[in-house]
Structure formats: C-alpha cells, structure tokens
Design a protein around this nucleic acid. Structure first.
Length: 362
DNA sequence: TCTGGGGTCCTAGGACCC
DNA sequence: TCTGGGGTCCTAGGACCC
C-alpha cells in the first residue's frame, strides 16, 4: 500500500459545460464550442463538444468545417476564454482545498497528491466522491476523477471514468488495466509514435510492456525508456507545484492565405504588442525573440534571435520579429499563419524598469 | 476532413571558450 | 602541423499535450 496516492480531477467537456451553466438550453442539444463554421467555409477547429455531438462523431481538434458537414444544425458557440478562465478558477479553488500538493495542468485538469492512512485506496475514493460533490455544488460543473499510484496511471484511469465518474486503479492492477489499451492512449504517445510502434508490431500497451527496453531505447531514444516504463505502469515524475512559463507566444491565422508583405507585417506588429503585454503582466524579461511562418501547404519555418541582454521592451520584440520576417519572407509563397514568441525568460518582478537593457539589431 | 492557439520537451549541429 | 575534451549557448525542427 503506497503512503501517497495521486488523484487526477478532469473537468468534463469543460467549455460546453460552462456554456450550459449560463444557458440551460445548451444541455438539450448538440453543442460545439470552437471556431466560427461560416456555413462550412470556416477555418479553425472544434475546441470542445458535448456528448450528444460526440455520439455523431464530432470531437475536439476536428476541423470546424467537418463538424458543420456532420451536424449543420448543431449549436455552434464561439470560444469565450475569459468566462471559462473564471469558471476554472472557481472550480480549481474548490478542488485545491482537498490537498496541499497539487499541480494544475491547463485550464481543466489538476493532479492532487494525498497522504492516506490505513484505508488507502478506499479513503482516496471517498475523497474523490467528496471532490465531485463539492465541485458540482459549488461551481455547478461535472468532473471525473482517476485515482492511482502515479500521474500517468491516474490520467488513464480518469479517461476511462469519463464522463462524470471515478475510477480507482491500484498499483497491483495498473499493468493489467493498461495492457489492453491502444498504445496511443499512453500520455506522450501521439499519432507519429503510434504509427511507428504499429509498424514494428506493437499496437497494444501490453505489447510495449512486454517488449525489450533496450530495443525501445535504440528505436526511440529517451522516449523509448519512458514508453516502456509507462506501459508497465511506472511514472517517476512528481507533482510540480509551482510552474513558471518558459515562453510566451501569440499566433494568428489569416482569414485567407496571403503573400502581401504589408498584411503580414501588420500582423507581426500586433502580435509583438500582445506578447509584450503578456510578458509585462507576468513581470518577465526575455532574451530570445522568434517568429513562426506557416505557409499555405502547412510547411513551417521558425526563426529566432537572441539579444545580448534580457529586455522588457516592446520595441525589442517588434524590431527583432520584423527583422526575422524580412529576412525570411518570400513574396511568392502564400502564408497561412504567423506567430511571435519570446523565450529565455527571466524574472524582473516589476520593481525596476530594464532601461538601457536592449540594444537590438541595427 | 483539411487542419487553432498556447504551451512543453527533446534532439542535433555548430560556435565558442577553456 | 595536427589534434583533445568538456561545457554552454544558440538555432531549427519535430512530437506532443490541453
């Protein structure tokens, strides 16, 4: 019996659940939160949809135009991030009262590490019930909870509990629990890796668990070792309580692909401004400025440049980003999206202005 | 089917310094 | 004239996650 147990609390269909709160009619119909479908011409994707839409094959990440083709009559709602962030803060505030060690991941997930007494998993399961009830009563939102020895298994347990459920997987049961799942359901194994694993004959988590660790390391490097551990229910990563951003970025997809330098430059200037606002709010200075260009065919380039010193000035972002754009934009290739990012961040905690800190490109 | 936005981590080569 | 090893930083790209 472990002395510590991990709970993963994951909000169910979070964005749509928030929309239901302010408009109960949403509950009765197929609802999709995401980009504007524009009668099937819209760019962008589905952020979240409710279970009525999921039954018809709509899912997160699906092109909004495809969702529209499947269900033109569904209720399409725009993403109202500020509202969801408020609801998230409410729910997370309630959940955090149940444990001292916790790690929030994104807007709708949080890991808790709890000390349990002699009643072990039974105690953790009772706690999970209390959490669900408190979140439902206090924030009006449904969630699911996975309970296990580590984050990775708790995550898989939570997935299998959805929606509105609790699933406990003990240390002894972890391997068995995971073994029948497709390899792609392991955290960290995406489409590409799943394909590669399939090609060498591993399609179930159990296949990877039984494979030679050396072979996986040879094939996938450091990921191979992690993959083998994960498949065997082992995850040594702990709860990371205080999390600091390592980069800040903003991106914009154009309504129509463009090769007009003015349009692209204006966008870069706007994005530079937004990135600067965000950095200023967080009280961080940056040393590296980068841009991303996605062309019409989805090919992408990233370019970055490091300043000699950390800076907190908008001008440093704008000048660097425009410089990188000018050096890399070809007038003949249509651009779909551009982005601006700062990284190599350092705290400057707001007390002093970083004057004379910058000297950007001549 | 036709693909958003905001992040993280890993790899790998090259520059540069001691 | 030929040839070390280690450490750190920079840059670019890829995979992945929510």
């Amino acid at each position: 019996m472990p002395d510590r147990i991990i709970l993963l609390v994951d909000m169910d269909y979070f964005f749509v659940a928030c929309e239901e709160l302010r408009n109960p009619a949403v509950r009765e119909t197929a609802a999709i939160v995401g980009a504007d479908p524009k009668n099937g011409e819209g760019r962008g994707v589905v952020s979240t949809c409710n279970y009525i839409a999921r039954k018809r094959g709509v899912h997160s990440g699906m092109p909004i135009s495809s969702a529209y083709r499947i269900m033109p009559d569904a209720l399409f709602l725009p993403v109202d991030m500020e509202y969801y962030e408020r609801k998230s803060a409410e729910a997370m505030g309630i959940i955090k009262r149940f444990a001292e060690k916790r790690e929030q991941v994104g807007i709708d997930e949080i890991y808790l590490e709890v000390q349990v007494g002699a009643d072990g998993y039974a105690g953790a399961e009772r706690l999970a019930k209390q959490i669900k009830e408190a979140v439902a009563a206090g924030a009006g939102l449904p969630c699911s909870v996975g309970v296990s020895v580590n984050k990775m298994v708790a995550k898989a347990a939570c997935e299998s509990a959805k929606p509105d459920g609790i699933r406990v997987v003990t240390e002894e049961d972890a391997r068995e629990f995971l073994s029948g799942m497709p390899v792609g359901s392991l955290h960290g194994i995406g489409k590409k890796t799943e394909e590669r694993l399939k090609r060498i004959g591993y399609s179930k988590v159990g296949d990877v668990a039984a494979a030679s660790k050396m072979l996986l390391i040879k094939e996938f490097g450091a990921c191979g070792a992690e993959m083998h551990d994960a498949a065997n229910g082992i995850d040594r990563s702990g709860i990371v309580e205080r999390w600091k951003a390592k980069s800040i970025s903003r991106e914009e997809t154009f309504i129509k692909d463009t090769s007009d330098p003015d349009v692209v430059r204006e966008s870069i200037i706007r994005l530079s401004h937004d990135v600067h606002c965000s950095a200023a709010t967080d009280g961080v200075a940056f040393k590296t400025v980068g841009i991303k260009i996605r062309y019409w065919d989805f090919s992408e380039v990233t370019r970055s440049i490091s300043l000699h010193y950390h800076s907190n000035e908008e001008e440093a972002i704008r000048m660097s980003a425009l410089h990188l754009l000018d050096a890399n934009m070809s007038r003949s290739t249509a651009i779909r999206k551009v982005g601006v990012r700062v990284s190599n961040l350092a705290d400057f905690s707001g007390q002093k202005k970083i004057a004379n800190f910058v000297r950007v490109l001549g």
